[in-house]
Computed example of a mutant assay.
Amino acid sequence: MALDAEGSQAVKAQVKLRELILAGELPAGARIAELAIVEKLGMSRTPIRAALMRLEQEGLLEALAGGGYAVRVFSERDVADAIEMRGTVEGLAARLAAERGVPGEILNEARQCLARIDDLLAQPRLNDAAFSRYVELNQRFHTLLREMAGSPVIARELDRVVSLPFASPSAFVAVQAGSAHSRDMLIVAQDQHREVLAAIERREGARAEAIMREHSRLAQRNLREALRSHSQRMPGVRLIRPQ
Rank of each mutant, 00 (worst) to 15 (best):
G67Y: 11
Q14A: 07
A129L: 11
H230D: 07
E204N: 15
A174M: 09
D4P: 05
E19C: 07
F74G: 13
A33I: 03
V71F: 11
E62D: 08
V153N: 02
I32M: 04
E62M: 10
L227K: 06
L239N: 08
L20I: 01
L227N: 10
V89L: 10
S44M: 08
S8F: 14
Q57M: 03
S151I: 11
G29H: 02
Q176W: 09
L26F: 01
E157G: 12
A167T: 02
A180L: 09
E19K: 13
Q139K: 09
R224Q: 10
R207Q: 10
P27Y: 02
R125F: 11
L55H: 02
A122Q: 14
R160L: 11
D184C: 03
Q9V: 01
K40L: 15
F172W: 07
E99Q: 12
M212F: 04
E157C: 11
Y134F: 15
R221L: 13
L41N: 04
N127K: 06
A174S: 13
L126G: 11
R241Q: 09
S231Q: 08
L218K: 05
A36Y: 07
S132V: 10
G104Q: 13
P235A: 01
A155R: 04
F141I: 00
L17A: 08
S132F: 09
M43T: 01
V11R: 14
A33C: 14
E6T: 09
A226C: 01
S163D: 14
G205E: 04
Q232S: 09
A33Q: 15
R18L: 14
L3G: 08
S179I: 01
E209Q: 12
E214L: 09
V188I: 14
N108V: 06
A23W: 06
I154F: 05
M148C: 02
A70I: 00
R72C: 05
R116I: 05
L164R: 11
D159Q: 05
E39H: 09
E25H: 15
D119W: 10
R221W: 02
D81R: 15
R86Y: 09
V79D: 08
D4V: 13
M234Y: 05
A28F: 11
A177S: 14
E225K: 03
A82L: 07
G101W: 00
